[in-house]
């Protein structure tokens, strides 16, 4: 939390800052309100904007409770007194005031309005995919100035930092590649795809540090949301829990014999 791996992009090198509660080099002297403005609106306590390398676009629908929970969690991290390295950006991207223009033109709002007709799992999945797990940060392509392409949501990005690619995770493409709720929930923990490959690249990190830490229910919710075709109602898809309860019932019957 005291910094991390730099992100090399066409705009230059971004360096993650110190997020520990150190009062000098970290965020120790911030207030909850300043933290909430930073995370949800992408604005620093000094009023300047963050570069969208910090994926605050995805967090603008976080609730006040979400912010309070996150703040509490961040306060538990041991402080580390290490100064944050400076970004090394190319002109004109090194001019931070330009971000105000960027925000006005490109900043998107994450879609998280609950849909009454959909299942709880679908709605939970929508929250996770479009907010906390920010799948679109990699799986949605970006324009010349790094803005997310709203017309190609989750349709893949062939131009990620470092020259890697993120495949399309649109519903149609996922279904055609053999994904199901069960095997996707499993992949979000183990990295194993339906054809037996084991995901590497930045997705391995997203699994190890992200989706692998979620509950099984949340992983199934992500899969339910991503695999429900637009305009269709998600149904109660079979889950491991349902299977194991059936096994238990079978065991009970044989136990009675």
């Amino acid at each position: 939390m005291a910094g991390g791996a730099p992100l090399d992009t066409p705009f230059g090198r971004f360096v993650p800052p110190n997020l520990t509660p150190d009062p000098v080099h970290g965020i120790g002297d911030w207030t909850l309100d300043q933290f909430a403005v930073a995370v949800r609106q992408g604005v620093r306590p000094d009023g300047k904007a963050y570069y969208p390398a910090f994926t605050y676009e995805f967090y603008n629908q976080f609730t006040d409770q979400d912010m309070a929970d996150l703040w509490t969690a961040f306060r538990t991290v041991p402080p580390v007194s290490v100064p944050t390295a400076q970004h090394d950006l190319n002109f004109p991207f090194n001019l931070r005031w330009g971000l105000k223009l960027w925000r006005a033109r490109y900043m998107t709002q994450s879609e998280t309005t609950p849909v009454m007709a959909q299942s709880d799992a679908w709605n939970r999945g929508q929250q996770l995919v479009n907010k906390a797990t920010h799948c679109g940060a990699c799986h949605t392509k970006r324009g010349l100035f790094g803005g997310l392409d709203a017309n190609a949501k989750l349709e893949g990005n062939t131009n990620l930092p470092g020259g890697s690619k993120a495949p399309s995770i649109s519903t149609e493409d996922l279904l055609s590649r053999g994904w199901t709720v069960a095997n996707m929930a499993y992949a979000l923990r183990t990295g194993i795809t339906p054809d037996g490959d084991v995901l590497g690249g930045s997705m391995a990190e997203a699994i190890a540090q992200g989706t692998g830490m979620l509950t099984e229910g949340d992983r199934e919710a992500i899969a339910t949301y991503l695999l429900t075709p637009s305009g269709q109602i998600s149904v109660g898809l079979p889950t491991n829990a349902a299977v194991s309860s059936m096994d238990s019932m079978a065991g009970m019957e044989s136990g009675g014999n």
């Binding site: 084991v198 690249g201 930045s202 391995a204 990190e205 699994i207």
Partner: peptide
């Protein structure tokens, strides 16, 4: 699978 992922990544 975790070792596969560690190596692939």
């Amino acid at each position: 699978s975790q070792t596969c992922a560690a190596c692939h990544s």
